[in-house]
């Protein structure tokens, strides 16, 4: 939509940097959406050297960047929320603020919500011109629309990859340093040491996608299929107790009551019947895809998508299809 029809006069985007010193990819997504729903788009940044993001943020349409600066080792939640709240108290008030649904993004939004006594909506997967947000619930199968009816700014916490990023061709944004007022005891959490882990795939209990295999794989060497699929989906491989007990894979792979409890966005169960002990370890997954020969397999009763079929036929085709993309 064109800016003259925008529902908000001014929209702020919380722009976060990752450990490599670059803006996270969701930043461009949020700025693109902000341009669609707002007339003026501005960004809030923090951290040492954050003013350096002015050009990158400008490319996506931000005209001004508020820089909280170095946080002196504090976790960002309190100081960044305090700095934004101080701007609003001084009359510099946006109509909406878009936060990335990240570790720090959610902290900042929550702190700000309580400071300003404003509602906050999280897990956004859509936002329309009228300010109605979309949320995927019940494992993503149901989309609900919500609208904040309280005072502005509206606080929206958005899931990554909800909007396609599109550059606006704008020039570098102007930078304005803003202060984080002393937040007293609430600002007590300090980072002592950062650890960046080098690894090829995500950890089983932290992965957004988990691909697990069970007895239905037939034999140990077929677990390669599970690993390959997991890698293609940037996920972690897992296993049922049956094949761990059988010695096909190490204990560290086990998902279930006596193994890891996983709560990924997507759980793919390949040749797993769904014994209770397995189900308790993975039923918290937001979405479950199961492939099993037996249409009576319990796992199919909790799957969002259940395939009655032979894993040896379906999975190789799935791997080929993903590779072809």
């Amino acid at each position: 939509m064109s800016p003259e029809n925008a529902s908000f006069d001014k929209v702020w985007v919380l722009a976060e940097a990752s450990a490599d010193g670059k803006l996270t990819s969701i930043t461009g997504e949020l700025l693109t959406k902000a341009r669609e729903v707002g007339t003026t788009v501005e960004a809030v940044v923090w951290g040492e050297g954050a003013e350096g993001f002015a050009a990158d943020l400008g490319k996506f349409g931000a005209t001004k960047v508020y820089n909280v600066g170095d946080l002196g080792g504090s976790l960002p939640g309190v100081p960044v929320a305090s700095a934004i709240a101080a701007q609003i108290a001084a009359g510099n008030k946006p109509d909406a603020i878009l936060f990335p649904q990240s570790y720090d993004g959610r902290d900042i939004a929550g702190r700000l919500s309580a400071k300003l006594n404003l509602g906050v909506l999280t897990n956004l997967v859509g936002l329309d011109a009228e300010g109605s947000s979309e949320h995927a619930i019940f494992g993503g199968a149901t989309i609900v629309k919500a609208k904040l009816t309280t005072e502005t700014p509206y606080l929206f916490v958005v899931r990554a990859k909800s909007f396609a990023p599109e550059e606006s061709g704008g020039g570098a944004a102007t930078v304005e340093a803003i202060e984080a007022p002393d937040a007293g005891a609430t600002n007590g959490a300090k980072i002592k040491q950062k650890h960046v882990e080098e690894r090829t795939g995500p950890k089983l209990d932290e992965a957004a996608v988990v691909v697990s295999g069970g007895r239905g794989l037939g034999e140990a060497k077929n677990f390669e299929m599970v690993e390959e699929l997991a890698k293609l989906l940037k996920g972690a491989p897992g296993a049922s107790r049956a094949i761990v007990d059988a010695g096909w894979v190490p204990y560290a792979y086990q998902v279930g009551q006596t193994g890891k409890t996983v709560k990924p966005t997507i759980y793919l169960a390949l040749g797993i019947s769904g014994a209770t002990q397995h189900m308790v370890g993975m039923k918290g997954a937001k979405n479950i895809i199961a492939i099993n020969k037996d249409e009576e397999a319990p796992i199919l009763s909790i799957a969002d998508l259940g395939i009655v079929g032979d894993v040896h036929k379906v999975v190789p085709k799935l791997i080929e299809a993903l590779k072809a993309r």
């Binding site: 919500s113 006594n117 404003l118 509602g119 906050v120 909506l121 109605s132 979309e134 019940f138 494992g139 199968a141 149901t142 989309i143 609900v144 629309k145 919500a146 609208k147 904040l148 009816t149 309280t150 492939i291 249409e295 199919l300 009763s301 909790i302 799957a303 969002d304 998508l305 259940g306 395939i307 009655v308 079929g309 032979d310 036929k313 379906v314």
Partner: peptide, 21 residues
């Protein structure tokens, strides 16, 4: 703090879609 209105299920939950290969 917040009142959420106009919440509609835009899409019915496709609870357990089972497909035979």
């Amino acid at each position: 703090g917040q009142e959420i209105t106009d919440v509609t299920a835009a899409e019915e939950r496709q609870a357990g879609e089972i497909v035979t290969d």
